[in-house]
Write a protein that binds this DNA or RNA. Structure first.
Length: 204
DNA sequence: ATCAAGATTACCT
DNA sequence: GGTAATCTTGATA
């Protein structure tokens, strides 16, 4: 078997629930990509929620376009976008069809396939211990280490290429809630969630 | 056809 | 703390 622990894969009904419920519950879960028989996996430690019906920062706020089409599907798909001419970022689509809600995966803690992650991101070995925490501490970095680009747009997370494994729910007292990073609209919404004290979180 | 903005990162002072 | 890099998309004409 090429994939790891596929029997624990999250199913459709996990993703089709309400955005903020899914966002918080994604913390602690294991994000997995299988490629060329080499699984890459990391624990999700930081996320942000986006909701096009009330949130001006969401890519779906102004209605459906070719770019955001997958975000309007029902939960359980991967929404990948390209930004600043440089980086890809990936999101987990949530909720019912037509809502335009998704969770941005902002940081993971490497668990499996770490050698390949280092190669994908730096093209060389780590130069020091500190650099390890720069591997996946940001949404662009996550996509670079996992080699996720536009070709994964719309990936069905209930299939075998990219999926998320179940794991124990992170205790509420270990979840920090803040406003989101890097946006200029709807800045006050407290929709960023991360695992307290985890060294892979992008910013305090 | 043109144009401005962007859910970021790395590198500089 | 400031900013360059770099290009796709969506809006406007």
């Amino acid at each position: 078997m090429n994939s790891i622990y596929p029997e624990n894969k999250l199913k459709k009904d996990f993703y089709t629930r309400e955005l903020l419920v899914v966002a918080k519950e994604l913390l602690g879960k294991i994000f997995v990509k299988n490629e060329n028989n080499t699984p890459i996996a990391g624990k999700i430690v930081e996320v942000e929620a986006y909701n096009g019906s009330v949130d001006e920062a969401a890519h779906t706020f102004n209605g459906k376009t070719k770019r955001n089409e997958v975000m309007f599907r029902e939960g359980g798909y991967l929404y990948v976008y390209f930004t600043y001419g440089v980086h890809y970022c990936c999101n987990v689509v949530t909720g019912k069809r037509g809502l335009g809600t998704a969770v941005l995966i902002r940081a993971i803690e490497p668990i499996k396939g770490i050698e390949l992650m280092i190669k994908n991101r730096f093209g060389r070995d780590l130069v020091n211990e500190k650099e390890k925490f720069n591997l996946t501490s940001g949404p662009g970095k996550v996509c670079q280490t996992m080699k996720i680009d536009k070709s994964y747009y719309g990936t069905d997370l209930t299939e075998d290429n990219i999926y998320i494994l179940d794991a124990p729910k992170v205790n509420d007292e270990k979840i920090v809630t803040t406003i989101r990073i890097g946006i200029k609209k709807s800045v006050g919404l407290p929709w960023r969630f991360y695992i307290k004290d985890n060294p892979y979180v992008s910013k305090k």
